[in-house]
């Protein structure tokens, strides 16, 4: 078969893999809903979880789509479609594709015309992040078992341990937001953009929380506070960036 980055064969293959992944999500979703019913979890909680997860996902998913559009210039549409729907992350796929293209003496702006170069990039992107794919099925039960054992021996510490993990992750991302602020001392204010965006998002979240608790008719806001603060923060990034850069 003649090679083309947008060959129908690639779309069929990618379509099959994505259908498989979609089927896995649907399978786990149906089972979890059934179990929720058995455990007597209120139907309202389940439907609110579904609707707010769906709404929250829209903005990050569109950001992921930007990655597909960027990578499609060199890799065609099928491969970025696969890579950004399965396993990888927005940042990883761009870095892995760049490393492979550089090793081939190519770049992200030029379309690959050679099947061998395409197979090379695809192999690097697959191997680079295969660790989770290989080890998660083998280790998840053991890791979960360890956590359960800790919680069984001391319930309060188990809860604190859980909160600590969430806080540890959030604090790392808060640090990341401030990583370029020192430039402000030498007159470069670009590093303040993420800080101000984060501040806007935090203020919006606090307002949503206050509205949801103080105003009865705005209780619904509690379910959508995170997507609202996310979208407001992202929207605020537009004027903040043009102001500071």
């Amino acid at each position: 078969m003649d090679f083309n980055v947008n060959s129908p064969f690639l779309f069929v293959m990618v379509g099959i893999v994505i259908a498989f992944v979609l089927a896995q999500s649907v399978y786990f979703l149906v089972r979890a809903i059934k179990r929720a019913k058995e455990l007597g979890i209120a139907k309202e909680i389940v439907s609110k979880t579904i609707s707010s997860a769906a709404i929250f996902t829209i903005a990050p998913a569109v950001a992921i789509l930007v990655g597909v559009a960027t990578l499609s210039k060199s890799l065609g549409i099928a491969l970025p479609w696969l890579r950004l729907s399965v396993i990888g992350s927005l940042s990883y796929e761009s870095i892995a594709a760049n490393s492979a293209l550089e090793a081939l003496g190519l770049n992200t702006a030029t379309q690959i015309t050679d099947a061998s170069a395409f197979a090379t990039v695809l192999s690097v992107m697959t191997l680079g992040i295969a660790v989770g794919l290989i080890f998660v099925p083998l280790l998840t039960k053991k890791i979960q078992g360890g956590i359960k054992a800790i919680e069984k021996s001391d319930k309060k510490w188990g809860e604190i341990l859980n909160n600590s993990m969430f806080l540890g992750m959030i604090s790392a991302f808060l640090g990341y937001v401030f990583c370029d602020v020192s430039g402000a001392f030498s007159g470069d204010f670009v590093g303040l953009i993420p800080v101000l965006v984060m501040a806007v998002s935090a203020v919006v979240m606090a307002i949503c929380g206050l509205c949801a608790t103080k105003v009865k008719s705005m209780k619904w806001m509690n379910d959508y506070a995170l997507p609202i603060s996310l979208v407001c923060g992202m929207a605020a990034a537009i004027p903040i960036t043009s102001w500071l850069s």
Binding site: F173, P194, M198, A202, V204, S229, C232, A237, T241, S242
Partner: peptide, 27 residues
């Protein structure tokens, strides 16, 4: 549209916008 100069900053700042809100709840 996705690569327009106007929208690029919004997508670039997704993580600060996400963790700003999340931090308020947890902190």
């Amino acid at each position: 549209v996705l690569e327009s100069e106007v929208l690029t900053p919004a997508f670039e700042q997704m993580l600060p916008a996400l963790f700003g809100g999340l931090a308020v709840v947890f902190v």
